[in-house]
């Protein structure tokens, strides 16, 4: 049996103002996984991450990193973790090189190795040319990459990223995805929280959804998407169309003179749609999902959990 990269059991966190951020979180992430922790604002994602890397003290529960209990040997557990927080948390007046080099020193890396690794990760993240600049001079995307370089400099086995691509433009986001995929392919377990569900869908093999301090779903991305009972597809046509094509058993609506959308239930087939359209001499030039599939599922799950919570409150 393999040791989990991260194992959380019955984790609770209550802040001084009485707010219960975590209400018994259970979570397990396997080594080598690319794992997404999803949830709306205030759901408990950042608190969970902060407890794992000791920025917040838990109220109760067990957290193990590669089977190292953080209550028993947090120092050892921390060596296995690299963390990229949501907010920029480096000295704005320090040089880019110094920030990464200093972090290597905090992890006890000898000077030559620390400098070698600093160069390696600044180059991999396209920041080597900026190494002598004060960090405040970097763009938002560069600052995010700087935090990733800093988190990787001690080569952790578990990399935790809290909304790493927030505020990053599409091109840079794609290049960061590629970089993270490569890091993961080399064996680093990655956990990320994100608001971009497209990011989770394209990167992560497993997903947990947290809402109001509880995990409401924890499964593989593929399995989760399988639960989607209905999808809406948009069809773009070659010919101009005046009305929604009639397709028996399917509902939909006309969007404009060259496109329409159709709702497809889980037990229905797209072949039927294409057959009917061909019979009507309508040629489809492209087809796409109306919304991100995971996003639809996420919204429905969080909404249903919200309703349950309200129901529970009503009973008490």
């Amino acid at each position: 049996m393999t040791t989990a990269a991260l194992s959380i059991r019955n984790l609770h966190k209550q802040y001084d103002n009485g707010f219960k951020a975590l209400k018994g979180v259970d979570l397990e992430v396997q080594p080598g996984d690319f794992f997404a922790l999803l949830g709306p604002n205030g759901a408990g994602k950042s608190t969970t991450i902060s407890v794992i890397c000791s920025l917040v003290q838990k109220t109760s529960g067990d957290v193990r990193i590669f089977d190292i209990d953080i209550d028993q040997n947090f120092s050892l557990a921390k060596r296995e973790i690299g963390v990229v927080p949501q907010e920029f948390n480096f000295n704005q007046f320090e040089k880019v090189f110094d920030i990464v080099r200093t972090q290597a020193g905090y992890f006890g890396l000898p000077a030559s190795l620390a400098e070698e690794r600093t160069e390696k990760y600044l180059k991999q993240l396209g920041l080597w040319d900026k190494r002598d600049q004060a960090s405040r001079m970097l763009s938002g995307g560069m600052k995010r990459r700087l935090m990733i370089a800093r988190a990787l400099v001690h080569e952790p086995k578990l990399l935790i990223l809290d909304e790493p691509t927030a505020g990053v433009d599409i091109e840079l986001r794609r290049s960061m995805w590629q970089f993270l995929k490569e890091i993961n392919a080399r064996g680093t377990t990655i956990i990320l929280t994100t608001h971009y569900l497209e990011e989770a869908e394209s990167l992560c093999r497993n997903v947990a959804i947290i809402d109001r301090g509880k995990i409401v779903q924890n499964t593989s991305t593929r399995e989760l998407l399988r639960k989607l009972s209905r999808e809406v597809f948009i069809f773009d046509t070659k010919e101009e169309i005046d009305d929604l094509p009639s397709i028996a058993g399917y509902s939909g609506q006309l969007i404009d003179s060259h496109s329409f959308e159709v709702e497809v239930e889980k037990n229905q087939s797209l072949n039927e749609i294409f057959t009917t359209l061909t019979e009507q001499n309508i040629h489809v030039v492209s087809m796409r999902n109306k919304a991100n599939r995971l996003e639809e599922l996420f919204v429905s799950m969080v909404e249903s959990h919200g309703n349950e919570s309200v129901g529970e409150k009503g009973k008490s």
Partner: peptide, 18 residues
């Protein structure tokens, strides 16, 4: 206080430094 204000104290707190 500067490290607290800029949150760079987190660099130390997440590291294994005693």
């Amino acid at each position: 206080y500067g490290t607290k204000f800029q949150r760079s104290v987190e660099e130390l707190l997440v590291s294994p430094v005693p």
